[in-house]
C-alpha cells in the first residue's frame, strides 16, 4: 500500500466525519423540530438555525462520494451497487429532506408548513438511520464474487448490528442536533434542548453495550484490530458520558464537542476496523483491499494536489459563513419575520 492510497482512505474517513458532525447536527435539529418543539414558531426557530448551513454541510457527503470515486473507485463501485436499495432509501430520504426546507418556507397554509416540517423531521431520522445501517453493514463479511461484485441478501442488510448501528447513528446525530440548538438559540428552547438531551443520553448506554456484543459476533474487528477496537469503543463510551455530564453541568460548548467526538470515534472505529480492507468477503480471497481498489498513482497525485489547494480555501470561507451568521436566535426573531426570511 502506498502512502497516497493510505492518505485517501483517511481523507474519505475524514470527509465522512465532517459530514456527520456538521450535517449530523442538521439531522438532529431536523428531528428536534417535532420532538422538542410543540408550537410552529418553535419549530421554525429550530429550522432557522440550520437553514443557512445544511446545504453546504451536505456537500461533504457529495465530496466523500466523489472522492471515493476518484481515489478508490472499485470500492465506490462495489459498495454502492451492492447496497443498492439501502442507499436508494437514504437518497430518497435526503431528497425529501432537501426540498422540505424550501417548501416549508414557501408554503402558505399552516397545514402545508406543518406537513413539510414533519417531512423534515421524519426524513432526517430515516437518513441517519439508513446511513448508520450502511456503515455497519459494510464492515461485516459479505458475499463478494471474484470480480468484486457484492450480492447481498436480506440478512446482509437487516441484522442486529446494522439495526443497532442505525439507532446509534440516529441517536448521536440527535444529541449533536440538540447541542447545536442549545448553542444557537436563547430562551426556553435552549434549556428544553439540554433537558431532553440529558434524558436521551440514557438511551446511549444500552445501545452501546448491545452494539459491542453485536460487533463482536458479526465482524472480525476484535480479531483483526483488538487494541484499536477496544480503544475506540472505550472512547465512544467516554465521550458519551462526557456529553451527558457536560450538558448536565450547563457547559454547552464542551457538551457539543463531546458529542462531536462520539461521532468521530464511531467513524474511526469503522475505518480502522476495516483496514486494510475496504470490504471483507466471506471468502477471504475475494476481499477488497485498499491497495487493489485505488486509482493509479498519477490520478492520486493529481487529486492530492487539488485537495491540498482547495480544502484550505473552502474551509476558510466555510468557517466564515458560520461565524458571520452566528447568533442566538429567539422566538422574537421568528415572530418578527413571520417566515424564515
Amino acid at each position: 500500500m502506498s502512502f497516497l492510497q493510505l492518505l485517501w482512505y483517511a481523507v474519505i474517513g475524514l470527509l465522512f466525519i465532517i459530514f456527520l458532525v456538521l450535517d449530523g447536527a442538521d439531522f438532529g435539529a431536523g428531528m428536534a423540530t417535532k420532538l422538542l418543539a410543540f408550537r410552529p414558531n418553535e419549530s421554525n426557530l429550530i429550522l432557522r438555525t440550520i437553514s443557512p448551513h445544511w446545504d453546504g454541510n451536505e456537500v461533504f457527503l457529495v465530496t466523500a462520494a466523489g472522492g471515493m470515486f476518484a481515489s478508490l473507485p472499485l470500492w465506490y463501485a462495489s459498495l454502492f451497487s451492492g447496497f443498492y436499495l439501502l442507499l436508494f432509501l437514504a437518497l430518497v430520504s435526503l431528497i425529501f429532506r432537501g426540498v422540505s426546507f424550501e417548501f416549508n418556507n414557501v408554503a402558505e397554509t399552516p397545514f402545508g408548513k406543518n406537513a413539510w416540517m414533519w417531512i423534515n423531521c421524519i426524513s432526517s431520522a430515516t437518513t441517519t438511520f439508513f446511513f448508520g445501517m450502511l456503515f455497519t453493514d459494510m464492515i461485516q463479511p459479505l458475499p463478494i464474487d471474484k470480480n468484486g461484485n457484492v450480492f447481498v441478501s436480506l440478512s446482509n442488510v437487516i441484522n442486529p448490528l446494522s439495526i443497532l448501528g442505525g439507532i446509534a447513528l440516529t441517536a448521536f446525530c440527535l444529541y449533536q442536533g440538540l447541542h447545536y440548538i442549545s448553542l444557537h438559540t436563547d430562551g426556553m428552547i435552549r434549556y428544553k434542548a439540554a433537558r431532553l438531551n440529558i434524558n436521551l443520553y440514557w438511551l446511549a448506554y444500552p445501545v452501546e453495550f448491545l452494539f459491542v456484543i453485536a460487533l463482536f459476533f458479526q465482524t472480525n474487528f476484535f480479531v483483526n484490530h483488538l487494541v484499536a477496537t477496544i480503544v475506540f469503543l472505550v472512547l465512544i463510551v467516554a465521550s458519551t458520558i462526557s456529553g451527558q455530564f457536560m450538558t448536565f453541568s450547563d457547559k454547552e460548548i464542551k457538551a457539543y464537542l463531546s458529542s462531536t467526538l462520539s461521532i468521530a470515534f464511531l467513524v474511526m472505529l469503522i475505518f480502522t476496523g476495516l483496514f486494510p480492507n475496504v470490504l471483507i468477503a466471506k471468502n477471504p480471497a475475494n476481499s477488497l483491499l485498499i491497495k487493489n481498489v485505488s486509482s493509479s498513482p498519477y490520478t492520486l497525485k493529481v487529486m492530492t494536489i487539488v485537495l491540498c489547494i482547495l480544502l484550505p480555501i473552502l474551509l476558510i470561507y466555510f468557517a466564515w459563513s458560520y461565524s458571520v451568521q452566528w447568533k442566538r436566535f429567539t422566538l422574537k426573531d421568528i415572530a418578527k419575520n413571520g417566515s424564515q426570511y
Binding site: 443557512p52 456537500v59 457529495v62 465530496t63 481515489s71 472499485l74 470561507y317 458571520v324
Partner: peptide, 25 residues
Amino acid sequence: GDIFGAPLAIEALLAFFLESTFIGV
C-alpha cells in the same frame, strides 16, 4: 474511475461548496 471520479470530486470541492455556502449567506 481513474478518470471520471477526479472531475466529479473536483466539482464538489470547487463548485458545490462555493454555491451552497454563498447561497446560504
